[in-house]
Write a protein that binds this DNA or RNA. Structure first.
Lengths: 214, 214
DNA sequence: AAATGTCTTGGACAACTGTCCAAGTCCTGT
DNA sequence: ACAGGACTTGGACAGTTGTCCAAGACATTT
């Protein structure tokens, strides 16, 4: 019996730091592809080419294409959740001004309309559609959603909203719909001031809502 | 020179009613596939199988897969635009109550959470993502967007909102984000009354917004 | 009934895909 | 220095894909 040179393409115990790095590069490339071409743009060969490595690499680091995609989506969510945590921490318990919140939101959205931001956004929406079909993707999305809801609630609280849960959800949904509209239309409309006007109206509406019960 | 039996798979002038019907069936099958499996679930063979016709049919009626997909998305949009027009006409210029508008919105959303509604919704969001990448899809979406904006503005006007353009856009975006959230989470949350509570809060906010200018 | 076009369809083809292998390289602990 | 394991990679394989063709079925007009 010949000594098996390595586990048959199942990197169970990874030791090498190189390997870890290459794996991360492959995931980066996969995330970019998801954003730029859609989930089905992710093929072993395309990912390898985008990462500048030989084609067989992807098969070595991931048991299957499904696992590769799953890990890519998980990594994407992980990163974004980390960002949410930072923003949440920065917000703290301070009382916020309506104008500065408007400005912060607008700046955040505009940042996402850069080419790189667009790709990241597209990948995120792709994940949402995937979650609508596959429960595994839904699990990935869950923590992300909790993060955005939490951040949004905090923002509404610091604006003095009455029902922070409801208005928090509404803020998340409205922003999500707005971003998708900007994406889908090539973000031609709602430039600069108009974006701010819409955001301001939204925040005004959500804070002015009386604590009415149903 | 042998007499060419037919234009080489380019059905320029269609006469036969049979052909028109089969073409429509293929488009139906393609739309369903887009919703159920995503745009890349659309393959010549899968569409033909779903429509219950031989595989070569799709190549006869559509010059390429791209055209098949494009036509399917166009048909999807066409149908939905027609529905929007009906609703718009039903709304008319009447003054609406906040409660009945809430109920109408909730009923409409709940109708979309049925299995068939889910598939249609998924196809729509797929089109939005496609539009983010391809200008051709953007053209398809344009008329649809105009229709929803128009309906939404009308609704806000009949609720007595001050700035119907801004609040109309916000209503569209919030509903769009809300539907996506319901889709992505398997619409477990926001059942029944909570959905109505959120919708009501949204409408209250959008109508209570003072006519503030930036 | 014959002609003229559309429609129908089984089969073929090259290109691409996911996956796997076998032989090599490199690093690390001893 | 050397052994053992992780890493690397070119190539191969079968399955799926988009597209096309050629031969026939069908309908309608002449």
């Amino acid at each position: 019996m010949v000594a098996q040179p390595s586990p048959p393409a199942l990197p169970r115990g990874r030791r090498d730091a190189r390997g870890e790095r290459r794996r991360a590069e492959l995931l980066d490339a996969a995330i970019d592809l998801i954003g730029a071409q859609g989930i089905d743009g992710v093929t072993h060969r395309a990912v390898a080419a985008a990462a500048g490595v030989p084609a067989a690499s992807t098969s070595y680091y991931f048991r299957s294409k499904d696992e590769l995609i799953h890990e890519a989506l998980r990594t994407l969510a992980e990163r974004e959740i980390e960002r949410l945590r930072e923003r949440r921490a920065a917000l703290g318990d301070a009382v916020a001004d309506l104008d500065e919140t408007t400005e912060a939101l607008a700046a955040w959205i505009e940042e996402q309309l850069t080419p790189a931001g667009r790709v990241a956004m597209l990948a995120q929406y792709q994940l949402q559609l995937e979650a609508a079909r596959r429960p595994e993707a839904r699990e990935i999305l869950q923590a992300w959603k909790d993060g955005t809801d939490d951040l949004s609630e905090t923002a509404m609280r610091s604006l003095g909203a009455s029902d922070v849960r409801t208005s928090g959800i509404l803020l998340v949904c409205a922003i999500d719909g707005l971003r998708l509209r900007l994406l889908a239309s090539g973000h031609a409309p709602l430039e600069g001031d108009e974006l701010r006007g819409v955001l301001r109206a939204l925040l005004v509406g959500l804070t002015a809502g009386r604590p009415k019960r149903v």
